[in-house]
Nucleic acid binder design. Structure first.
Lengths: 127, 127
DNA sequence: TATTAATTGATAATGAATATCAATAAGAGC
DNA sequence: GCTCTTATTGATATTCATTATCAATTAATA
């Protein structure tokens, strides 16, 4: 029941700080550079555990693998539909948006996601 | 290059009209009831083709399988995190939202998604 | 009716993520 | 420090949604 402080969990938590919206694969690749023994399953497990306990953010975009984020406050993202990279959207969160919908037909809204989709500058210059 | 009017494509287009935000599996199940010969791959192919040609909507939510929709105008959805069902959100689309972000750091925004996540009334009454 | 290329059906393959389970090791109590 | 309990790990199998493959079929055109 008690959470244990394992080397692997520590590594996942630290690695998130050094990567920009990585997916689980990218976190794994970064970790195995210096710690080849760590299993991919362990990376997935710890990413999810840390996200559940609100120590990191988990961003499930509308396409592709989930991304993780050292930012835990609500904010929105831009997603490049070519490379899949995420960028923080520099607009304020709609604090009152959900109020318009609370208990719509018995549906209880708990949170909302806003995702902007387009092309990042890198991909624009590549074609 | 020319699009052909196959029985299978017709079936997919018609079936979408009778289902509420179905995923590909549900469209397939509905079709095979009366047409057991139709392949699941064909259903996937036609759903994607019709979506590309804007005849139906494709909704890639932040979790689980993609949903399809006979509505093609932009609108938002509520998603139940228990059963995964989608509901139309009865709020107007933010027409000018993307303007705040156009060319943010070279990123060109093409569209945006708003998704409300919560619990539907059916799932609320079940536990 | 013959031609040709879009489409299909059946199935293999992919990618992301979770499940399984025996082996390991963190942390508590002694 | 040593032992015990059980959270955690590593390795791998499995699941799920979807796409790829490819020979066979068939819609549409001439």
């Amino acid at each position: 029941m008690n959470r244990r402080n394992t080397v692997q969990r520590q590594l996942v938590a630290e690695t998130i700080l050094n990567l920009d919206h990585p997916n689980a694969e990218q976190v794994y690749e970064e970790i195995v550079k210096n710690h080849p023994h760590v299993s991919k399953a362990t990376v997935y497990r710890n990413l999810n555990l840390l996200a559940e306990q609100q120590e990191i953010g988990k961003i499930e975009t509308s396409e592709g693998a989930a991304r993780f984020d050292f930012r835990t406050q609500p904010h929105y993202h831009l997603r490049c539909r070519k490379c899949g990279r995420l960028f923080d959207a520099e607009i304020p969160v709609f604090e009152h948006l959900e109020e318009n919908l609370r208990n719509t037909g018995g549906f209880t809204v708990e949170k909302h996601i806003v995702e902007f989709i387009g092309i990042c500058s890198d991909c624009k210059n590549k074609n």
